[in-house]
């Protein structure tokens, strides 16, 4: 079976964003100089694919990263983990804000990879998506969809997805072709590459596939993008407890008991 993993990459979540804007006269975010890394959800999707390959040698894994050359360091990091194939799907700077346009582009990226039996994505695809793209892509292509799985396993030739859905844990035997969005979990933390593979990939060429010339109509347009301070909350300045630690703990205990008992409502 062919597994295609779509990886988005995000601006390093630990990076303190000082400024962010759309490029002048366009809808492309200006991310010049910002460091990229795989998101926890990208990593979960990639590790899940690699685990399935480890479990069944007949499984082939292709990793695809859409974007421009700024994503190439991410590609090398993924290449060092030795999936069967890794390529960048060159989006020529096309913004992904419009989910239908982004879905057409991602579908083309999957088609360029393989006749996939299984497509894996993080539960959110990059900095601009909050979980729309995986179910939209699956439905647009008529694939089985399973959202927010934390583990996939092979059982009697079928792929079984495990996920938490509110109060219940579900196991779903997937009909293929299927698209599964993967969420972070201890069981799918991304492995570390072997140093020899890191060294090898430094010399290897990066494969680039160019997207189709016509990405179709855009129905959703970005008008502004800006760093925003966290919204104001609470009744004002934080009251820091003072005095001996035992006194602080006693005061915190009283405060919490009052909330438990409804006295602070």
């Amino acid at each position: 079976m062919e597994i295609v993993v779509l990886l988005a990459g995000v601006v390093d979540p630990k990076w303190r964003l000082e400024r962010l804007a759309l490029r002048a006269g366009g809808e492309q975010p200006d991310e010049t100089g910002l460091p990229y890394r795989l998101s926890p959800f990208d990593e979960a999707a990639l590790e899940t694919a690699l685990k399935l390959r480890d479990a069944d040698p007949a499984i082939r894994v292709t990793a695809v990263i859409p974007g421009d050359a700024a994503r190439d360091p991410l590609l090398r990091a993924v290449m060092a983990l030795r999936p069967h194939r890794v390529f960048r799907f060159d989006t020529a700077g096309a913004p992904l804000w419009d989910p239908h346009a982004a879905t057409r582009l991602l579908a083309a990226a999957v088609d360029a990879a393989a006749a996939a039996g299984l497509v894996l994505m993080g539960r959110e695809f990059g900095d601009g998506d909050d979980g729309v793209l995986p179910p939209l892509l699956a439905t647009a292509r008529g694939w089985t969809f399973c959202g927010q799985a934390h583990a996939l396993a092979l059982a009697d030739g079928a792929i079984v997805a495990h996920r938490m859905r509110g109060p219940r844990e579900e196991a779903i035997a997937l009909a293929t072709p299927a698209l599964v969005s993967v969420t972070n979990d201890r069981s799918n933390r991304l492995r570390h590459p072997l140093m020899k593979n890191v060294v090898l990939t430094r010399r290897e060429p990066i494969e680039i596939v160019t997207m189709p010339a016509d990405a179709g109509p855009i129905a959703l347009h970005a008008r502004s993008l800006a760093v925003v301070p966290p919204p104001q909350r609470g009744a004002g300045a934080c009251r820091m407890l003072e005095g001996p630690l035992d006194t602080q703990i006693a005061e915190m205990a009283t405060y919490l008991r009052d909330w438990r008992d409804g006295a602070s409502r």
């Binding site: 239908h100 729309v132 179910p135 959202g147 927010q148 509110g166 129905a219």
Partner: peptide, 23 residues
């Protein structure tokens, strides 16, 4: 909001060709 509502919103957008605005 939540996993079910968000999945339903995205998939319905594909079914009735609506523009998904997300969360």
């Amino acid at each position: 909001g939540g996993a079910v509502g968000e999945e339903l919103a995205a998939r319905l957008a594909a079914r009735i060709y609506a523009v998904p605005l997300g969360r």
